[in-house]
Each structure stands twice: as structure tokens, then as C-alpha cells.
């Protein structure tokens, strides 16, 4: 549901991020990314490991300052939080129970206890962890912890959802179920999603658009508009001939970049 406002929801303008390296040299993680994302769009970003995807999301989440360039994000509803993040590797708090973790963002927003517990319970149910609501993260598997991180972001219900490989550590079935949950939530509540993933299939299944990043320093190399009608059926999609065409198109670009990134890493 694109908004009537012609301005993009997120505008990334020639963004550069440079880290100080170990030996005083400069590590350019993001090397000039320009990207506009419209309101309600689901954009997937793929790219070789270490190409700056996480860095890009961190800048969007205000956790990192751009070295040069700018980002802009429009808030349309002051009642709703502007952005929420699902971190690579969950980032849930070990000292809180699953329920407290999921309710965390709501608590900071001042949602009254009864209401936030109900919301947290709902999302814990959606990710299938009812039995673990009162458990501590140490008692959960890696995949379960990742689902808690997801529920926490959904419960927070931001306008822009920044997701960094949120389904990375999940088995195939859970991954499918949660992709479904994400799509439902995205369709129900107007929400702009920036979704980083390693999986081309996942990007094609979920995204309106797939952006392919180059090896470090990360730039946008290629963009694919995904033509499949919504609501999508993740299984039926795979048999669509356009799916394999697009997969091959993205893979061609990505393969060269992965090779380059490998060579870079070996060179040190």
C-alpha cells in the first residue's frame, strides 16, 4: 500500500561508512549506497558475507553514524514507533524471561502491564513458544532465541522494520511458518520492511524488490522487481518459471561478488 505522499519512506543518499581497521588503515564497509524505499515496501538485500549489509541496517537504526552521505526516514504516525530491529543473532536479554523480552519495547513505550502482557502472549503464541513464556533464554535453543527476537520486534509494531537475517538459524519448516507470519503481519499493518538475507529464494519469496550488494565496500550492483502477486504461496512460487529466471539473474551477479569477497578475505 504505497502512501499518497510521493516522498519515499526511507531515502538513503550516497551513504559511506568507514571503520578504522586493526592496523590503522581504513575499512570502507559501505561504499556509496543510494536507495529509495517507498512506504509499505518490502525490500530484500542480498550480498556476500562482510559486504556491509549489517552496517547499512545499523545506520538505518541510528546505531552507527554515516561517514558521509545521509539517510532520511519519515514518520507518518506519531503514536507508533518509527523503527524496530531484529538483530542478527537475536540479541535478546539473558536476564529477562521470554515474555519480558517480547514485552520489552512496549514497556519502554509506557504500555500498561496488562495490555503489554497480552500482546506479548499473542506474539509468543505466533512463534510457537507458549510453553517457554516464563523460561530464560539460556534454556532455549539458538533458533528459539531467534524467534523471541522476532516476536519482540512484531510486538513493538514499528512503521519500519529492520531485519538482519532473522531466519538464519532456523530449520526449513519453522522458517516457512515464520515467513508466513511476517507476510501476514506486513499485509495487515502498513509496514515498511528492510530485510537482509543470504538466501536468494527467501528474498524472492518475500520481497517486492531485491537489491544485490557488491563485495566490500558495499554498493548496490543490481535491482530486481519481483512480479509475483500477493498473497504469495511460498511453495507454489518455486514452480513458477519466472522464479528460476530471476534466481539465475541474481545468482549470476552474486557469484562474481562472492568470489571477489573470498579473494579479498584471503588477501587479508
Amino acid at each position: 500500500m504505497p502512501s499518497s505522499n510521493m516522498q519515499p519512506k526511507i531515502r538513503i543518499d550516497n551513504l559511506h561508512v568507514v571503520y578504522p581497521g586493526r592496523r590503522g588503515e581504513q575499512v570502507e564497509a559501505v561504499g556509496g549506497v543510494t536507495l529509495d524505499i517507498t512506504d509499505g515496501e518490502l525490500v530484500c538485500i542480498v550480498g556476500p558475507s562482510g559486504c556491509g549489509k549489517t552496517t547499512l541496517l545499523r545506520v538505518l537504526a541510528d546505531l552507527e553514524q554515516p561517514t558521509s552521505g545521509a539517510i532520511q526516514m519519515l514518520q507518518s504516525n506519531p503514536e507508533r514507533p518509527l523503527k524496530g530491529t531484529v538483530f542478527q543473532g537475536a540479541g535478546i536479554f539473558p536476564w529477562m524471561t521470554v515474555e519480558q523480552n517480547v514485552a520489552y519495547g512496549l514497556k519502554l513505550r509506557g504500555v500498561p502491564p496488562v495490555e503489554r502482557t497480552a500482546t506479548a502472549r499473542h506474539w509468543i503464541g505466533e512463534i510457537g513458544l507458549e510453553r517457554f513464556a516464563q523460561a530464560y533464554p539460556a534454556q532455549l535453543s539458538g533458533g528459539m532465541q531467534q524467534r523471541v527476537g522476532l516476536a519482540r520486534a512484531f510486538a513493538f509494531d514499528p512503521e519500519v522494520l529492520l531485519m538482519d537475517e532473522p531466519f538464519g538459524a532456523l530449520d526449513a519448516q519453522t522458517r516457512l511458518l515464520l515467513q508466513q507470519t511476517l507476510l501476514q503481519q506486513w499485509e495487515r499493518r502498513t509496514k515498511t520492511v528492510v530485510f537482509v538475507t543470504h538466501s536468494i529464494e527467501e528474498a524472492l519469496t518475500l520481497g517486492d524488490r531485491v537489491c544485490v550488494m557488491s563485495a566490500r565496500p558495499g554498493r548496490l550492483l543490481h535491482e530486481v522487481s519481483v512480479p509475483f502477486a500477493r498473497p504469495r504461496d511460498a511453495i507454489a512460487l518455486r514452480t513458477d518459471p519466472r522464479f528460476s529466471t530471476l534466481f539465475a539473474e541474481i545468482w549470476d551477479v552474486l557469484r562474481d561478488e562472492v568470489d571477489r569477497a573470498r579473494a579479498d578475505e584471503v588477501a587479508g
Binding site: 537504526a61 524496530g84 540479541g91 519495547g105
Partner: peptide
């Protein structure tokens, strides 16, 4: 420090 970042991203 990751935990502080998580908290800040939720508006702490």
C-alpha cells in the same frame, strides 16, 4: 555493548 544497542533501538 550489544545489549545497550538493542535497548537503544527500542527507544531506551
Amino acid at each position: 555493548p550489544r545489549y545497550f544497542e538493542v535497548a537503544r533501538s527500542f527507544g531506551a
